[in-house]
């Protein structure tokens, strides 16, 4: 995991409504040395955490139990926190003004996660 060294110690928020996927993301992130700042599976919780936590990066599931997570994306953008959309929809599931945000399509492997995070960071 040499190429993932850059993510050691960064503070990450996971916003994902599927518990198992969320757990897998945590595991992946721990493997590359990230610090887990929290997880959110519902929009209201996600908004609170996106606003209040000290973060370097966020992974944002587009669909949170039927609700689109774009308000969270707006908060993160306003705070200048890089983030990745995690989604089962393709790029068409993202509004036009957010098409520049990297997308991690489900299902994904570690390598793709790292690649998406790298794109978000730069």
């Amino acid at each position: 995991m040499n190429d993932a060294q850059i993510f050691v110690g960064i503070r990450v928020l996971i916003i994902e409504d599927e518990a198992l996927v969320s757990m897998m993301l945590e595991e992946f992130l721990e493997q590359i040395g990230c610090r887990m700042m929290g997880t959110a599976s519902r929009l209201d919780d996600a908004i609170v955490k996106a606003r209040s936590l000290a973060l370097d990066m966020a992974l944002v599931d587009v669909n949170l139990a039927g609700e689109a997570s774009f308000p969270v994306a707006e908060i993160l953008t306003a705070r200048d926190i890089p983030f990745v959309f995690v989604t089962g929809y393709g790029p068409s599931g993202v509004p036009a003004d957010m098409r520049h945000i990297p997308i991690l399509p489900k299902p994904f492997q570690m390598a793709q996660l790292v690649e998406a995070m790298r794109m978000a960071a730069y």
Binding site: L20, G88, Y89, K106
Partner: peptide
Amino acid sequence: NHRVKNTLATVQAI
């Protein structure tokens, strides 16, 4: 389609 992809992700997580 979204659900299938999500399910695959869940299966992968399991």
